[in-house]
């Protein structure tokens, strides 16, 4: 490689290293805001702002879904499967993938008493793809 080309290559490497460093720093700075949702432990610990429109997410606690006698109202618990959980109240149609033990994202406001009033519920799918015949298995062999 001749000297001119070598210098060009060095310049590129330096410029790239600079860009990567800048991006890394800004990502770390943004990290607080770029997360799509607050996990249950941050809702429980009081990290999440009250009465501000936020997103929160977790797994639907099995057996916690209570439907109101009239209308579409529903209440359920979202858990991180590690002890922390919070209750969500929602009035509307649930996505078809919304099921017990599945991930869910809720958009809405956290009330002072810790109840999350959702105006939108999204189902979160995990990375597992399993045919229906294997539904009894927890993991793919």
């Amino acid at each position: 490689m001749n000297p001119i080309r070598k210098r060009r290559l060095q310049l590129i490497v330096f410029a790239l290293a600079g860009v990567v460093a800048t991006a890394a720093v800004s990502l770390v700075a943004l990290r607080q805001n770029i997360d799509h949702f607050y996990p249950p432990h941050r809702i429980v610990s009081g990290d999440a702002p009250v009465e501000v429109r936020i997103r929160a997410g977790g797994y639907v606690e099995p057996g916690s879904i209570e439907r109101e006698a009239e209308g579409l109202g529903v209440r359920f618990l979202l858990t991180d499967r590690a002890g922390a959980s919070f209750q969500v109240a929602y009035d509307g149609l649930l996505p078809s993938l919304f099921k017990e033990d599945q991930g869910s994202i809720v958009v809405g406001r956290l009330a002072e008493d810790g109840l999350f009033k959702a105006d939108q519920v999204l189902a979160r799918h995990d990375e597992n793809y399993t045919p229906p015949e294997l539904k009894d298995l927890d993991t793919i062999p």
């Binding site: 990290r31 799509h36 607050y38 997410g57 979160r124 995990d126 990375e127 597992n128 793809y129």
Partner: peptide, 9 residues
């Protein structure tokens, strides 16, 4: 990040 999109399968 905590994304709605699932991690790679």
């Amino acid at each position: 990040f905590a994304t709605l999109h699932q991690p790679g399968s």
